[in-house]
Design a protein around this nucleic acid. Structure first.
Lengths: 330, 330
DNA sequence: TTGTAAGCGTTATCAT
DNA sequence: ATGATAACGCTTACAA
């Protein structure tokens, strides 16, 4: 690999001026600039990114922390982020946190060590207080997160709107006995709080009350969905529709429905969340809440790139619109 | 961030000796070693990886080129590779090639520029001759590839065995009119050749001949699967089983089957390939060829790590065993 | 406008 | 066993 010194020898021009040309600095005569450019081309010279980084002048690598890459939600997000970053010649290093606090710290340390120049965090295990100190070392962007730190831009959907839209859809289709699933704990904080609010508001708008027996917490997987369906079949007082909060859970329910002879949506309407490709594979195909993953990833990448360039952001919170996709299950 | 010079000041010991301690070199007195270690701890010093890389002494980053991360085959492979790499404190930078030759070169250039210390290539678009020069700059491992370059280790399954096993399964279940799908062109090279050989051998073993009308080439997606099913329903002389070479294609066929009233497996048995999670979501659930993705990724990571350490590999070609998973579609 | 030289944080060479 | 010192490739004061 040719170095800057090779270009110096070849062109007979000083290192400083060559560097100026490389970095498009002004105050270089046309003549010398062209000579340098010629030498660079002849040697097919490329600046060594490692050396640049050591001088502290490089922003080309962003770290991306996801929960698990095999979760389609995250793999689509990665895809969107990587494509946008690639357009700007930014590399993406990725990490799987498995929501392990210790691992998360290890990744954040890469920011401190200048191994990455910025971080996009999609699932934060640690607290605001633990994350904040790392801001000193480089820009951070939250994506699909509910922590709020001053100065940290955040890209997400309105969970309240999503739940409201989903439950309202079920109500409009004529269902009245609505069950509710969540990946969280039906808690009063973060994502849960917002979704719960949406759920409550939708129900209240029709003067309906929430049946606590029909609330399922901590449900994530296809297997969980099967279990939920089983539980419902065993109930005396059964719901006639369910907001699952997850396509996987909804898919699991379709599988179990076949086993138990439950007809979807006649006996039980099932609404997913995310709009993953699997929605088209189940029978019946799943109605769901479409998440604007592509836009979220693309925006998150753009934000961090702006921060790399030292641009000021005119806005810190971005709530992207969801939309309801009606298929066969509701 | 504390630097080696800070440790020097704090401990009153020279840079050279501090460096020796950091790198566990011998010929350092117990006394000084402990002093240095103490200073390092007090300052919570970590060596700067960028500086190390510039000295040419760092092997901590591997580049991983996949076709598309949203393809579950690749996301599971990434997952396996990342987990194994993380065990050894190796970072994974990932790239999506979309099988674009130009992009592939850009990624390989990162090896030249020492942005990554080694490369795992899972889908090579360029020719052997184009790839070979990059070997000079760092180790390369092929995974799920069919190019052969001397000295480049390769991890894959036996495509011939996979096709033979799959087709033989269909024959053993009593099907005789076997259709065949491939993501390739039914060509005489690479992956195709091996799979075709397996297909032929399995058929020949039962003295059956291949009906060229039942061979579908260049089929990849769920949509492709729907099209294949449609074509089959329109045939006068229909096959009674199909080896799809892809779970997606097989899944697409189950969707179309519902639309056209085709019963699987009674009217047409369908065999997938990969054993992706979606196999459990379709009705009927898909029989398929299970790929040892976890093992492939893990092994590929181990190989590149061995090469980082300068270890000699005792073996260059690794063919991992597939197995047939019978579910409801055959 | 141009060039010299210092410095980024390491490791390796060579004396001592 | 230890310590100066050069070197990795680059950018940027500072001087000219």
């Amino acid at each position: 690999m040719a170095t800057i010194s090779d270009v110096v020898k070849r062109s007979g021009i000083s290192k400083a001026t060559v560097s100026r040309v490389i970095n498009n600095h002004p105050h270089v005569s046309k003549e010398k600039r062209e000579k340098v450019l010629a030498a660079m081309k002849e040697l097919s010279y490329t600046p060594n990114p490692t050396a640049r980084r050591m001088r502290g002048q490089l922003n080309t690598t962003v770290g991306l922390v996801v929960h698990r890459v095999v979760n389609p939600y995250f793999s689509y997000l990665m895809d969107a982020i990587e494509r946008k970053a690639a357009e700007h010649n930014i590399r993406v290093i990725f990490f799987q946190s498995k929501e392990d606090k210790q691992k998360e710290f290890e990744f954040l340390d890469l920011l401190k060590q200048k191994q990455v120049d910025g971080m996009i965090l999609t699932t934060v295990a640690n607290s605001v207080e633990d994350i904040r100190p790392y801001l000193e070392y480089g820009p951070i962007v939250f994506c699909n997160e509910y922590l709020r730190i001053d100065d940290v831009p955040i890209v997400r959907i309105s969970e309240e709107d999503a739940a409201f839209t989903g439950v309202t859809h079920l109500l409009e289709e004529g269902y009245r006995n609505i069950a509710y699933c969540t990946g969280g704990l039906f808690a009063d904080e973060g994502k849960d709080r917002d979704r719960n609010t949406g759920f409550r508001k939708a129900m209240e708008a029709k003067q309906l009350s929430i049946n606590p027996e029909w609330v399922f917490i901590d449900q994530h997987s296809i297997e969980d969905g099967r279990t939920v369906m089983k539980k419902i079949t065993e109930m005396d007082n059964k719901p006639d529709a369910i907001f699952t909060g997850s396509d996987e859970v909804a898919a699991g329910m379709t599988i179990a429905a076949r086993e138990y002879g439950v007809k979807i949506p006649e006996d039980l309407a099932v609404l997913g969340f995310d709009d993953q490709p699997l929605c088209l594979l189940t029978s019946p195909q799943l109605s769901t809440i479409h998440q604007p993953i592509e836009e979220m990833g693309s925006l998150a990448a753009e934000l961090i790139i702006k921060l790399f360039k030292g641009e000021k952001l005119e806005q810190l919170e971005y709530e992207l619109p969801i939309k309801l996709v009606k298929r066969e299950s509701t």
